[in-house]
Amino acid sequence: DRIFMTRTEALEFLLKAHQTAVDKIGHPSHKQTPADHAAIEALDRLLLDVRARRVDQFQINASAAQIIVTD
């Protein structure tokens, strides 16, 4: 599946995904793992790359739809 978004929409989408990941590892019942921190770092890099126009398409994980940034 493909989803087309403007750059602004894609950045909002990534910010929400980032916040969800941060909230998940901050929850008291969740045991933090290196994979959790790696996922947040990957989202940080992706946010910067989309914002800087170095990336025009991405996929958060293998089961997610491919996001295509349109400007």
Rank of each mutant, 00 (worst) to 15 (best):
D1H: 04
R2H: 12
R2Y: 11
M5C: 03
M5I: 02
M5E: 00
T6S: 10
R7H: 07
T8V: 14
A10G: 01
A10V: 04
L11Y: 07
L11H: 02
E12S: 15
E12N: 11
F13I: 05
F13S: 02
F13L: 09
L14V: 03
L14T: 00
L14H: 00
K16N: 08
H18P: 00
H18D: 00
H18L: 15
T20Y: 12
T20V: 12
T20H: 12
A21N: 03
A21T: 06
V22Q: 08
V22H: 06
V22S: 07
D23K: 12
D23C: 08
K24T: 09
K24Q: 09
I25L: 13
I25F: 10
I25N: 05
G26F: 15
H27S: 14
P28W: 02
P28F: 02
K31R: 08
K31L: 13
K31V: 14
Q32K: 13
Q32G: 14
T33P: 04
T33S: 13
P34C: 05
P34K: 09
A35P: 05
D36M: 08
D36R: 03
D36P: 03
H37R: 14
A39E: 14
A39I: 14
A39C: 06
I40R: 03
I40C: 03
E41T: 09
E41I: 12
E41H: 12
A42R: 14
L43R: 00
R45P: 00
R45T: 06
R45I: 07
L46N: 00
L46D: 00
L46P: 00
L48M: 12
L48R: 14
L48W: 05
D49R: 04
V50Q: 00
V50K: 00
R51E: 11
R51S: 13
A52N: 13
A52P: 00
V55S: 02
D56S: 15
D56I: 14
D56G: 09
D56K: 14
Q57T: 14
F58Y: 02
F58I: 03
I60F: 05
N61H: 13
N61Y: 12
A62T: 11
A62M: 09
A62P: 14
S63L: 13
A64K: 08
A65G: 06
I68H: 06
T70I: 15
D71Y: 05
